[in-house]
Computed example of a mutant assay.
Amino acid sequence: MKTESTVSNGILHVRLTGDLIGSPDTQQLLQSVDDHLGESVMLCAVDLSGVRYINSTGIGVLVSLLTKFRSRGGELVLINPADHPRKMLALTKLNAIFTIAENETAAAEVLKSAS
């Protein structure tokens, strides 16, 4: 899995590509998010359009990220999950817990209205 993260307009944008299956990469992702939370970033948009496959560990990482932001009064939005991640979110009924936006613009609108 490859992770890219940037902060703009108070929103942490995380773009994931590859397989979200739990590995040293997921620990790096969680640490990167923790670092940004230390900078008082309260809003996060996670782009899942490049994630081919996700397993239960990957789902756990997403839930952990959501918990990190919501426990601090923030919010997290998933952007355009690819086919398999979208199916896994529906299968686990987490699509009712996560806010899902179709693109970055829609995600930014949701996040700004939540803050």
Rank of each mutant, 00 (worst) to 15 (best):
K2M: 11
T3E: 03
E4N: 13
S5Y: 11
S5C: 12
T6D: 10
T6Y: 12
T6R: 15
I11F: 05
I11L: 09
L12S: 10
L12G: 09
H13M: 11
R15G: 06
L16R: 04
L16A: 05
G18A: 06
G18C: 07
D19R: 15
L20A: 05
L20Q: 05
I21P: 08
I21L: 14
I21F: 11
G22E: 00
G22T: 04
G22D: 03
G22K: 06
G22P: 10
S23C: 12
T26K: 11
T26N: 11
T26E: 13
Q28N: 12
L30S: 07
L30Q: 08
L30A: 09
L30G: 02
Q31T: 11
Q31I: 01
V33H: 02
V33I: 15
D35W: 00
H36S: 13
L37Q: 09
G38V: 05
G38D: 10
E39A: 15
S40F: 07
S40A: 13
V41M: 03
M42V: 10
M42S: 14
L43D: 00
L43C: 07
L43F: 08
V46A: 07
D47V: 01
D47L: 03
D47M: 03
D47T: 03
D47Q: 09
L48R: 06
L48C: 02
S49R: 12
G50C: 09
G50L: 10
V51Q: 02
V51M: 05
V51S: 01
R52C: 07
R52Q: 12
I54Q: 06
N55E: 02
S56T: 06
S56K: 04
S56D: 03
S56A: 05
T57E: 06
T57G: 08
G58V: 07
I59G: 00
L62N: 01
L62Y: 04
L62P: 03
L65T: 10
T67L: 11
T67R: 15
K68E: 10
K68Y: 13
R70W: 08
S71C: 10
R72N: 14
R72M: 13
G73M: 10
G73E: 04
G74P: 07
G74W: 09
E75L: 09
E75G: 04
L76D: 00
L76T: 07
L76C: 04
L76F: 07
V77L: 08
L78I: 09
I79D: 01
N80K: 12
N80P: 01
P81K: 00
P81V: 05
P81G: 02
A82N: 10
D83R: 14
P85Q: 04
P85M: 03
R86K: 12
K87R: 08
M88A: 02
L89T: 01
L89I: 02
A90D: 07
A90S: 10
L91T: 09
L91R: 03
T92E: 01
T92N: 02
K93S: 06
L94G: 04
L94R: 06
N95V: 01
A96W: 02
A96V: 04
I97F: 10
I97E: 06
F98P: 06
F98K: 02
F98D: 00
T99I: 10
I100K: 05
A101E: 04
A101P: 05
N103F: 14
N103M: 11
N103G: 14
N103I: 13
N103W: 11
E104S: 15
A106K: 15
A106R: 13
V110C: 13
L111Q: 04
L111H: 03
S113F: 09
A114E: 08
